[in-house]
């Protein structure tokens, strides 16, 4: 079975969020980049587990981005991907990104295409669904569990107020979230092996961006905390009722 895992580069979770160029660009100054946690902890690690269970499975990684996405792909290779593809275009329109991934996937013969449920910077939750529609494949979103039985994927996904177990024949696109796997750290052997694993760069296909980011804003600052004495919780209740009007 061939698995394609979509990898996005995102700022570290502790990165300072600030903007430059008149609030039109994210300030990358001093920012550490990581693999988007949903892509890494859940999608990629589950793919690695499937490969550990059946060595005939192979894992390809894809990232759409500039050359600065390569260290992230190397890290994903160190965790356990077999080869990586970078589509050479740096853009934040998810339709364009999905189009590039679908283009590569078309000729790749993948049985599973895995993504994280969203990236922690754009919070789009769009990529998996778009790739699935472009390839005319079923899409199981927000999956918490994935097991294979031959060419049938058994996928548990979150639904309102519970869980649903789906059975679907491959090829299928799945977005992963918490529950799917446990985070891992790459070991020295993986890091060494990653250096020589294939990482190919392909040029993008033409695509009209459907969206573009105009500007960023920070939320209004809080006025500061009002402390209430621990012996006087009734005062807190009064404030919540009369001042904040939330209870």
């Amino acid at each position: 079975m061939k698995i394609l895992v979509c990898i996005s580069k995102t700022p570290d979770t502790t990165a300072k969020i600030a903007f430059t160029d008149n609030n039109t660009k994210f300030d990358t100054n001093g920012v550490q980049w990581i693999i988007n946690p949903y892509d890494e902890w859940y999608a990629l690690v589950r793919a690695i587990e499937l490969k550990e269970a059946d060595a005939s499975n192979s894992i390809h990684l894809i990232s759409v981005g500039g050359s600065d996405a390569e260290p992230i792909l190397r890290k994903a290779l160190a965790l356990g991907g077999d080869e990586a593809i970078r589509v050479n275009i740096d853009i934040d329109d998810s339709y364009t990104i999905a189009t590039q991934i679908a283009e590569v996937a078309k000729s790749g013969g993948y049985d599973l295409i895995l993504t994280g449920k969203e990236t922690i910077d754009h919070n789009g939750s769009t990529l998996g669904g778009m790739v699935a529609e472009l390839l005319n494949l079923p899409y199981i979103s927000l999956a918490t569990k994935l097991d294979m039985n031959g060419s049938i994927a058994h996928v548990t996904r979150e639904i309102d107020g519970g869980q649903e177990l789906d059975e679907v024949a491959t090829p299928v696109v799945i977005s992963a979230q918490k529950g799917m796997a446990e985070a891992r750290i790459p070991n020295m052997r993986g890091i060494m092996a990653a250096r020589t694993k294939p990482l190919s760069v392909v040029e993008p296909v033409a695509c009209d961006a459907l969206t573009s980011t105009v500007s960023f804003e920070m939320p209004p600052a809080k006025a500061g905390v009002k402390l209430v004495d621990a012996e006087n919780v009734a005062e807190l209740v009064r404030l919540l009722k009369e001042e904040a009007k939330v209870v």
């Binding site: 769009t126 669904g129 899409y139 979103s141 459907l210």
Partner: peptide, 24 residues
């Protein structure tokens, strides 16, 4: 709505209609 089913549907509809999508 950017709900569980909205997240599954909106991206697919976006592709079908070639319509730009903003979520959240």
């Amino acid at each position: 709505s950017h709900s569980l089913s909205g997240k599954a549907l909106a991206p697919r509809v976006s592709v079908r209609l070639k319509a730009g999508l903003v979520t959240g």
